[in-house]
Design a protein around this nucleic acid. Structure first.
Lengths: 334, 334
DNA sequence: TACGTATGGTAAATCGATTTATCAATTGAA
DNA sequence: TTCAATTGATAAATCGATTTACCATACGTA
C-alpha cells in the first residue's frame, strides 16, 4: 500500500505537508508550486490515507453501527434505507448487523462496537438480553439510539406516533360503519405494537364500543404469521367485520387467509394495516394502510447519533403524522 | 477508554502479556496466578482492545464491504441476508453501501475501501461507471466479487444458473400447453436478465416455436415496472397466453395489472416469475416461481472473499439448481 | 563449580496518519 | 544595521495494540 511517507518522498516534502494538504489545513502556508507538486504525486500514485491509522489518531471512524431484527422484512428494510440515506449525507458509512448474530461479545460487530470501531450505535427493536448487553456496552463509548422499542440508560429512544396510527386505522373503519373491529398486534412484548393497540382501543371506546381482549390477536410481522393470526382471531371472535393489523406484511397474510375462505376483503370484511409498502398497493385487493414515517425514523436515528446535541435519556418522537391510505381492502360495513 | 496499558498497570505486568493473553498466544509461558490476575482485571475494567489499533497493526479489519443497488428490494435483501449470515459465521462484519450513494471516492465507504478499511468488497449488480471505478479502486487492495453482473479485471464474477432458470420457467408453461409465451426482462443491459431471456428463447425454440423480439418486454424489478411492462407487452403482442417474468416483484406487478383487466391469472393467462419470496406465496392468486439460490449467492460471495483461495478473473456459478414452484398463477392453456 | 536449559516474563520496534511546536531563512521596519 | 515578523516548511510525539527478540533467574546435570 502507498503511504503518506511514499508520497512525501516522491514529492520531496515531509509527511506533515501531505497530511495537511489532504485535510485542507488552512494554517498550512506553502508555495503554490509545492502544493501542485504534492497534489500531482497524490493523484499519480493514487494515494488514499489508511483509514485505520486515521481513525486511531482521530479517535473517530466515520462508521455507524446499525443492528436490526431481520433485514429481509420490507418494513425494516425501509428503516435501513432511511438510515443509509442519512448516513451518506453525513459522510458516514453503515456497519450492518443482525440481532440474531449477536453472540455475547464474540461477534465481530460487537468487538467493533466495544472497541471504538464505530462512532455510534442504532439498535432496532431491542428486546432480548443480547440487545440489552450490546446497548450497555455501547452507551459509554458512543451515542446510542434505540429504535421503536427497548430502553437502556444513557440512550435515546426514537419512536413514531404509534398510538395515533392505531387510532387512525380504527377511526377509518369506524367511519365506514364498522363497529366490531378487531386488532392483530405484532407481539405483546413490543411497546410500539402495544401503543398501536392502545390507539385502537381508545378509538373504539370513544365510539361507544367496548373492546375486549378476545377481539385482539397476534399477527407478527410476516405474511405467514398474519394469515395464522387472522384465522385464530376469527375462531375466537367470529362476529368481527373488520380488523386493524399492526404490520403490513401480516396484513397481506390476513388478506390471503380471507381470500382462501372466500371472504372478499373490502366487501365482506375490511382490513387496514400499519405501514405502507409498495407491495400493499399491488396485492389484490389492494391493502389499505396507515403510512408511517419509516424512512424518517431511520434518518432521524442517524441524525441524532451524529448530531452535536446528543441528549441521552430522552425519547424522540418523529413528528410526521401517520396518514391513512384507503385502498380496496376497506369498504363500508354491510 | 481503557487501554491495554491501563490493564497492564493494574495487573502489574507488561502490555505484551495482556495482548498475548487476549490473543491466546500458545507460546506465552506465565504462571496460572499471573494469568488469573490479568484476566480478572480485564473483566473488572471491562476491557476491549481498540479495533483501530488492532487493524492498523495487523493490516486486516474483519470488515467486508457490500454495495448493493437498492436494499429495499426483497430480492436483493435476500442476498444481503445470505451475505450477513456467512459473514457472521466467518467472524466478519458487513459494511453496507448503496450504489446510488457512491460519489467518486468522496463517500465514506469509498474512502474506507480505498484506504484499507475493509478486507474485501462485494459489489452487487455492477453496471454504472461509479461501480466500475469502485471495483478498480478495490481490486488491488482486497479480494473483490461482482455479484450477478458486471466485469472488471482481477475480480471474481459470481452468478446463478440464470439461463436454466429462464428455460425452466418457460418449460413449466409449455408443459401446461402454452405455446405463445412472452418474456418480461429486468433490463436488457443486465447480463443475468439477458441469460434468463436466452433460456426462455431456447426452450421455446426447442418446442418448435419461433420467439420474436415483440414477445419480450421490460419489467424492471419493482411492482410498478412489472405492471407497466405487462401492459405494454399486451399491447404489442395480444395473442400471448402466458409470460415468464424475470423478477418476482415485477411478477406481482404483472398480476395486479391482469387483475385490474379482469383477466384471471391461472385460468385466462399464466404468469411465472424468477425468484421466490415469501410474498409470492401470499399474494392471490399465489405466484408461481422459479426459486433461485439467493442466499447461497450472498453466502458464496462472502466465502469467496474470505477464502484463502481467492482466484481472480474467474466466474463462479452457484451450483444450486433453480427449482420450479407451481402455484395458482399458472394453469393449463385453454 | 560450571554449563546448558527451562521458566516467566519484558523492551522496543512497528503499523500509518495527524498535529503541535519549532526552526531557518527571508522580508520589513526603525 | 538590528530586531521583529512573516514565510515555508519540518521534527517528533502520539494514538493503542501487536510481536519479535531478548533477558534475567532458577534449576538440573556432569
Amino acid at each position: 500500500m502507498t503511504t503518506s511517507l511514499d508520497i512525501a518522498k516522491a514529492a520531496r516534502v515531509s509527511p506533515a505537508v501531505v497530511s495537511r494538504i489532504i485535510n485542507q489545513d488552512a494554517s498550512l502556508r506553502i508555495t503554490a508550486q509545492t502544493r501542485r507538486r504534492v497534489e500531482r504525486v497524490i493523484k499519480a500514485m493514487d494515494y488514499a490515507p489508511n483509514t485505520c491509522a486515521q481513525s486511531l489518531r482521530r479517535a473517530r471512524t466515520g462508521i455507524l453501527a446499525l443492528v436490526v431484527h431481520d433485514m429481509t422484512n420490507p418494513v425494516y428494510a425501509e428503516i435501513l434505507a432511511g438510515a443509509q440515506d442519512a448516513a451518506a449525507s453525513q459522510g458516514k458509512a453503515l456497519l450492518l448487523g443482525e440481532a440474531k448474530d449477536l453472540n455475547n461479545g464474540q461477534s465481530r460487530i460487537e468487538s467493533l462496537i466495544g472497541g471504538g470501531g464505530a462512532d455510534g450505535l442504532i439498535l432496532q427493536g431491542a428486546g432480548t438480553a443480547l440487545d440489552r448487553a450490546l446497548a450497555r456496552a455501547a452507551r459509554r463509548l458512543m451515542p446510542t439510539v434505540l429504535l421503536q422499542s427497548g430502553h437502556a440508560r444513557d440512550t435515546i429512544l426514537m419512536r413514531m406516533k404509534d398510538h395515533q396510527a392505531g387510532a387512525l386505522a380504527c377511526r377509518a373503519l369506524l367511519k365506514l360503519g364498522h363497529r366490531r373491529i378487531g386488532f392483530l398486534g405484532v407481539s405483546p412484548s413490543l411497546s410500539f405494537s402495544d401503543d398501536r393497540q392502545k390507539g385502537w382501543h381508545e378509538a373504539l371506546t370513544k365510539a361507544g364500543e367496548s373492546p375486549t381482549p378476545l377481539m385482539t390477536g397476534i399477527g407478527g410481522n410476516t405474511c405467514a404469521q398474519g394469515a395464522d393470526g387472522m384465522k385464530r382471531l376469527f375462531m375466537t371472535q367470529p362476529d368481527l367485520t373488520a380488523v386493524v393489523v399492526a404490520n403490513v406484511m401480516a396484513g397481506i397474510g390476513a388478506l390471503s387467509y380471507l381470500h382462501d375462505q372466500d371472504i372478499q376483503a373490502g366487501r365482506d370484511f375490511s382490513v387496514i394495516a400499519v405501514h405502507d409498502s409498495n407491495l400493499a398497493a399491488y396485492v389484490r385487493p389492494a391493502l389499505s394502510v396507515v403510512r408511517m414515517p419509516l424512512r424518517a425514523l431511520g434518518r432521524g436515528a442517524v441524525d441524532a447519533v451524529c448530531g452535536h446535541d446528543f441528549h441521552a435519556n430522552t425519547t424522540i418522537t418523529i413528528p410526521d403524522a401517520p396518514t391513512v391510505i384507503a385502498r380496496a381492502s376497506t369498504g363500508p360495513a354491510r
